[in-house]
Simulated scan of single mutants.
Amino acid sequence: MSQQRPEDLTLWRSYIRGELDTNTESRLEALLQGDEAAFAAYNAALFSMECELPGPKDEEAYRQSIIEKLPQTHTKERRFRSSKRKSWTRHPLLHYAIAATLTALLLGNGVFDKISAETNQLMNRPNSSSLSEWMMKATTGWLDGWQR
């Protein structure tokens, strides 16, 4: 961390103690929000004043007051119900069932036989065109015929 100038530390210490006028405080707060160097100087001043600053008298009560001020999230019951509704769509068994059904339909229609026949024809052809071009033409032709 870079060395802070003494006048910066003095200014930030005055800010922490609340000894500055409103305009200067506003300016420093704006600096804290947008300038990392200003935040580093503030942090250094804060750490240098650690012994001077009061701590909470009852730390547990202080923590509880902060927790109580935090916005409440959904209750566990709501989260459980909504996750239960969505969980069946994400269950792997559903995905396996859909894949098995589609595979059975494709096998029953002979799609894999047609694809293998086209592939065998492509493999046995002379090298007049590339295999990938031939496969694309055969697949698009087959898909066009299937859509009719």
Rank of each mutant, 00 (worst) to 15 (best):
A40D: 15
Q33R: 13
S65C: 03
N43W: 02
L131T: 10
R13E: 15
Q4L: 02
W88T: 12
H95W: 10
T22C: 03
N124T: 12
G141V: 02
H95F: 03
E36V: 09
N23S: 13
R13T: 13
K114E: 08
A97Y: 07
T139S: 15
M135L: 11
P56W: 11
T24G: 05
G108P: 04
R81V: 13
L70F: 14
P6T: 11
A100I: 10
C51A: 15
K86C: 09
W12C: 01
M135S: 01
T119G: 06
M135R: 06
R63V: 12
E50S: 08
E77R: 12
N124A: 14
A100C: 05
A97H: 12
I98F: 09
A100K: 10
D144L: 02
E118R: 06
M1N: 01
Q64T: 04
V111R: 03
R85C: 13
G110A: 07
A117P: 00
A104C: 03
T103G: 02
G18Q: 04
L53T: 09
L106N: 07
D58Q: 08
K114M: 05
S65F: 08
R85W: 03
L105Y: 07
S130V: 00
E29W: 01
A97T: 10
T101G: 11
S26P: 08
K137R: 11
I98Y: 07
P54V: 12
T22R: 07
L31D: 12
A41I: 01
T101C: 10
W142Q: 00
P92S: 11
L31E: 13
D8K: 04
F80E: 06
L93G: 00
Q33A: 10
T103Y: 14
E29Q: 13
S129F: 02
R81A: 06
K84Q: 11
I16T: 06
E59H: 02
P92H: 04
Y62V: 06
R63C: 05
V111G: 02
L31R: 15
S48R: 01
M136L: 08
G141K: 08
T89A: 14
F47D: 04
G145K: 13
P6E: 05
A117I: 11
R78H: 12
E29K: 06
P54L: 13
D144C: 01
S83D: 08
M1D: 00
Q4I: 08
P92A: 05
L131I: 07
S48E: 02
H74T: 08
P126W: 08
T101F: 14
S129R: 09
E133R: 03
L105I: 10
S83E: 13
T75M: 01
S65N: 06
L106I: 03
I115C: 04
P71F: 09
H74W: 15
L32W: 02
